[in-house]
């Protein structure tokens, strides 16, 4: 089947899509946007976090066809320089596989809550698993991004 969607402001079309392909697969393998990561493909790690019509979702849990006509924003198209910079400066990036998803999720949090408490940061990022950092520097990064607003 064909899937037409807007990704990062640009129309994207994929043909001969197998009906079982996820939005994550479309983004990565058909649109070559590899920033959304394929760590668990079951919604348990947040590494593929994207915006779907402005809502934070796991791209692995959106069926490709469901993205038809929708607006997707991925890490590649995020106005996330502030958050991205904060992650780098705070030392919140190690292997980095979780980082794009965390950046998108932190961006979403800061859009809604510009100055989150630590407890709010933790609850908002609970769906993003990081195996390297132990999270301390991720919390630092979100605080830093909030402070540099």
């Amino acid at each position: 089947m064909r899937v037409s969607t807007t990704v990062n402001g640009t129309p994207h079309v994929a043909d001969d899509v197998w009906e079982g392909e996820s939005l994550l697969y479309l983004l990565r393998e058909r649109f070559a946007l590899f920033g959304s990561k394929n760590a668990c493909e079951q919604g348990e790690c947040g590494s593929c976090s994207v915006y779907l019509d402005g809502t934070l979702v796991c791209a692995c849990l959106v069926l490709g066809g469901q993205a038809n006509g929708r607006e997707i924003v991925t890490i590649e198209g995020l106005d996330g320089a502030k958050v991205q910079q904060a992650f780098v400066v705070a030392g919140a990036v190690q292997c980095g596989f979780c980082t794009p998803g965390l950046v998108v999720a932190a961006h979403d949090l800061l859009n809604r809550v510009p100055n989150p408490t630590d407890a709010q940061i933790r609850e908002a990022l609970a769906g993003n698993i990081c195996r390297c950092t132990g999270y301390a520097k991720i919390i630092d990064a979100v605080r830093l991004a909030a402070g540099s607003a």
Binding site: G20, E41, Q42, L63, G65, Q66
Partner: peptide
């Protein structure tokens, strides 16, 4: 998709139609 997609992604289920 929080249930159905897990089934599909992990190859537990191949529904004839969705």
């Amino acid at each position: 998709g929080t249930d159905v997609m897990v089934e599909i992604n992990l190859d537990h289920q191949r529904p004839a139609a969705i």
